[in-house]
Amino acid sequence: MRDFNWRRTVLALVFAGSGLALTALAVWLAWNVLNAPWPAALAAARLRIIGAALYAVLALLGLVLTGLAMTVALRQVSARFMGADFSASGNGDGGSA
């Protein structure tokens, strides 16, 4: 029987939790754009700030999804480019640090 890898599980849970938190933040920011009452004089500045925050959330979500994919699902990589082959595989032990 294979040993349970706690490190991989904790990393996956951290990435999943981060993704959920960032998604909730993005939904809240979008709700503020659509539903929150604000004075017309501040609308342009507020939209600029919320838009920048949404870009930051999307960038962080991209990092979270990439890290989650690498932590959980990436076991073997192979590629072929212009006649050159590359392949790498891991046993999922996470190494020792």
Rank of each mutant, 00 (worst) to 15 (best):
M1E: 09
M1N: 09
R2L: 09
F4K: 03
F4I: 15
N5T: 10
N5S: 02
N5D: 13
N5Y: 02
N5A: 03
W6P: 15
W6E: 14
R7H: 04
R7M: 06
T9M: 14
V10N: 14
V10H: 06
A12T: 13
L13T: 05
F15L: 07
F15Q: 08
A16P: 05
G19S: 07
G19E: 06
L20C: 07
L20Q: 11
L20A: 11
A21G: 00
A21R: 09
A24V: 03
A24H: 09
A24Q: 11
L25Y: 06
L25S: 11
A26Y: 04
A26G: 05
V27I: 13
V27P: 03
W28I: 06
W28F: 06
L29C: 12
W31I: 02
N32V: 04
L34W: 00
N35R: 07
P37C: 11
W38N: 07
P39T: 04
P39V: 05
A40K: 05
A41M: 13
L42V: 15
A43H: 10
A44E: 13
A45Q: 03
R46G: 08
L47G: 00
L47E: 00
R48V: 13
R48Q: 14
R48W: 14
I49F: 08
A52W: 07
L54N: 03
Y55K: 12
Y55D: 14
A56M: 03
L58S: 01
L58E: 04
A59I: 02
L60Q: 02
L60E: 01
L61E: 07
G62Q: 02
L63F: 07
L63E: 01
L65Q: 13
L65S: 13
L65A: 15
G67K: 02
L68W: 04
A69Y: 14
A69C: 08
A69M: 12
M70A: 08
T71W: 00
V72A: 06
V72R: 07
A73M: 08
A73D: 10
Q76E: 15
Q76F: 10
V77G: 01
S78L: 01
S78P: 00
R80G: 13
F81E: 05
F81Q: 03
M82K: 09
M82A: 12
G83N: 03
A84K: 04
D85Y: 07
F86D: 03
S89T: 13
S89V: 14
G90N: 07
G90A: 09
G90F: 08
G90Y: 01
G90V: 11
N91M: 12
G92W: 05
D93G: 00
G94V: 13
G94E: 09
G95D: 04
G95T: 05
G95E: 08
G95H: 06
S96R: 15
